[in-house]
Design a protein around this nucleic acid. Structure first.
Length: 641
RNA sequence: GCUGAUGUAGCUCAGCAGGUAGAGCACUUCCUUGGUAAGGAAGAGGUCACGGGUUCAAGUCCCGUCAUCAGCUCCA
């Protein structure tokens, strides 16, 4: 039979040859590194015979799919180790994830694991890996599988099987451990050379908060010790970028229980950066025909009953405040307030689109276990706007909003993924008619396609009033967060009875776009801090230039320079202490200040300054004029070092 | 909210067989005026998260609360 390789090369092989044998026929190294094989794009074990002409692709740890197989098999190995150490453990699911794997386990009565137990499990895994156990695939009848796991006393596997009635059931066995698994797996445990269990946490069975909480153990493995070391180094580096750590070190923000959990307080330096971001967006809004409005932080509860936010999200809002028989809600959203502004007076089609923008602070009662730094908080400010337009204008307005969001990510050089967030089949979750939804989803998709956006579809990720385009970024620790969003809304215009007079002199419903390019200022800042690792570019840095006289003799010159820089609109700071220059430099570098200018007697005599750029080091003496010109250039958002 | 872990000086952390706290950095004062990542000395600084309990005695053991961290659930 004919086997075709990814490079187009074809070779003749006997029927029934396995992936492992094909690998061997190519090279010894490939045979050693091979973890699985794709046969006509279907994942096969290396030991499975191939019995017809096919296109194949052998995967190793260098391929994403190879890693997935490797880590999935590692999860089985961990399960084997756990069963060995804690007999009677019941097993849930144990998949590979982006970085490693986990297994959800239900430990025997009375046994609780903590991080201290992880090395013990690691050691057992390592020992079992050395046994060179093969992963054996067992095809089995559904009834027999049920029997097996019933006898084994594993209710979770039985429950999983209930959902697989009409499918082909396979078990995989390595050493003394057998698991219900669709595969595929690495040929042998011996390729797992480096093992690190990372952490341990609770996870509800099947992700349902009503179910029992199982113990989830996360780990990662590699075919080489060196790869593990690299992974751990990278992880350490990532932890240094954590915005909570940098926020404290650089004095950007604080969060204190004295004020309240999840209620961040901006310190002068953090507040400065945030204002810079706001001003950046404000200029864009002006250019794009938005007008700014300001609305209060609380509003009559009826407003939120009308919008549906109150009933829908009642358990994630702060309780209403009662004042003189009226109830008020700390606003969880800005939209209803903006709708009132739209509804203030009759609107003509000639006035549309009306684009109302506000940096609106909203308050949501997030579950205590959810709060993290600036990324998930109870009070935050959205760079919010609502665009009221005619249906004929909708797609252009969506495009404009998406472009603005893209401009943000481009300016800061952030990597984003784009998600079209659509409804799912649970109609109870959503307001409005199915036709409205289909239309809105179609329109969003059309714009996304016309703009050549690379996107994926998130079913069930829509808001209750409409679908959206969300922009998602990863933080330093690899967790995903939604930042910018553009949402189409046919529901709120109905609920608030919004209208405009068309050219036909009839009343019509406008469509609303909700959009926020940054999303939440707090969350955006958290990502921005991590993105720059605290090394803010010149135009954003709260302190741009550290003026460092070498001794008191240059103090006057330094003070004069500082005032001049201030006059020119820069943000300098002088270090006039009687400390050695090394010390002053060390501290300026540690505070990640973009530029230091060092002034010794040489500089005073020649009217120059010695320039030092953060991360680049000493650039030597420069004339004052050259330096000022450089600073002027650096002060632009698009300046690249 | 749930599971688990953690909470000691402004920061980073040590102390834990229960016998009323310690380091480095930061801070204050003094000395030093030094050319590209931390000069020296002295001093000051703590209701050991908070509230109960056990004990002759609690930072240390037990219970509760709050907060933080990891993950789950949720996220307009």
């Amino acid at each position: 039979m004919k086997i075709t390789f990814p490079d187009g090369l074809q070779k003749e092989y006997p029927i029934g040859i396995t992936g492992q044998q094909i690998a061997e026929s190519i090279s010894h190294k490939l045979a050693k590194d091979a973890l699985g094989i794709f046969v006509n794009d279907v994942k096969y074990d290396l030991s499975t015979p191939i019995d017809e002409d096919a296109t194949v692709r052998i995967v190793t740890f260098n391929d994403e799919e190879g890693k997935e197989i490797f880590w999935h098999s590692s999860a089985h190995l961990m399960a084997e180790a756990i069963e060995n150490l804690y007999p009677g453990t019941k097993f849930g699911v144990g998949p590979a994830i982006e970085q490693g794997f986990y297994y959800d386990v239900d430990l025997p009565e009375g046994i609780k694991l903590s991080n201290e137990d992880l090395p013990k499990i690691e050691a057992k895994m390592f020992e079992l890996a050395q046994h060179n156990s093969n992963f054996e695939r067992v095809d089995i009848r559904w009834e027999d599988a049920i029997d097996y796991f019933k006898k084994d006393g594993d209710p979770y596997k039985v429950e999983l099987l209930e959902g697989l009635k009409d499918e082909k059931i396979t078990l995989y066995k390595q050493g003394n451990f057998t698991d219900l698994c669709r595969g595929t797996h690495i040929p042998n445990t011996s390729v797992i050379k480096a093992i690190k269990l990372l952490n341990i946490a609770g996870a509800y069975w099947r992700g349902d908060a009503n179910n029992k909480m199982l113990t989830r153990i996360y780990g990662i493995t590699f075919p080489k010790k060196q790869l593990l070391d690299e992974f751990l180094t990278l992880k350490e580096e990532a932890e240094k970028r954590d915005h909570r750590k940098l926020g404290k070190e650089l004095e950007l923000f604080m969060i204190t229980p004295a004020i309240g959990a999840g209620l961040p307080v901006w310190l002068p330096k953090g507040a400065f950066i945030r204002r810079k971001l706001e001003n950046f967006i404000k200029e864009e809004l002006l250019r794009r025909g938005y007008v700014e409005v300001i609305t209060p932080h609380i509003g009559n509860l009826n407003l939120y009953k009308t919008s549906g936010h109150y009933p829908y999200y009642s358990d994630s809002q702060f309780a209403p405040i009662k004042v003189e028989e009226e109830e008020y809600l700390l606003k969880p959203m800005n939209c209803p307030h903006h709708h009132q502004i739209y509804a203030l007076k009759p609107r003509s089609y000639k006035d549309l689109p009306v684009r109302l923008a506000e940096f609106g602070t909203v308050y949501r009662y997030e579950q205590s276990g959810e709060l993290t730094g600036l990324t998930r908080v109870r009070g935050f400010t959205q760079d919010d706007a609502h665009i009221y337009c005619m249906h004929s204008q909708l797609k252009d307005e969506i495009r404009n909003a998406v472009e603005l969001t893209q401009l943000v990510f481009k300016t800061f050089g952030m990597e984003v993924t784009t998600r079209l967030s659509f409804r799912d089949d649970n109609s109870e979750k959503y307001a409005g008619s199915l036709e409205m939804w289909e239309q809105a989803e179609r329109e969003l998709t059309e714009v996304a396609n016309e703009m050549n956006l690379e996107y994926f579809i998130g079913k069930g990720e829509a808001s209750f009033y409409g679908p959206k385009i969300d922009f998602i970024v990863k933080d330093a620790l690899g967790r995903k967060w939604q930042l910018g969003t553009v949402q189409v809304d046919y529901v709120m215009p109905e609920r608030f009875g919004l209208e405009y007079i068309g050219s036909d002199n009839q009343k019509h419903r406008p469509v609303i776009i909700h959009r926020a390019p940054f999303g939440s200022m707090e969350r955006f800042m958290s990502i921005l801090i991590e993105h720059y690792a605290g090394n803010f570019p010149f135009w954003l840095a709260p302190v741009q230039i550290k003026v460092l006289p070498i001794s008191d003799k240059q103090l006057d010159f330094a003070i004069a320079l500082e005032s001049k820089l201030k006059e020119l609109g820069f943000r300098p700071e002088i270090d006039a202490r009687s400390e050695k220059i090394n010390r002053k430099i060390a501290e300026a570098e540690q505070m990640k200040i973009p530029v230091s200018v060092i002034i010794g007697q040489k500089e005073v005599d020649t009217n120059t300054v010695s320039l030092r750029i953060h991360g680049k080091g000493d650039l030597g003496a420069k004339s004052l004029n050259d330096v000022l010109e450089l600073f002027k250039n650096m002060n632009e958002p698009d300046y690249k070092i």
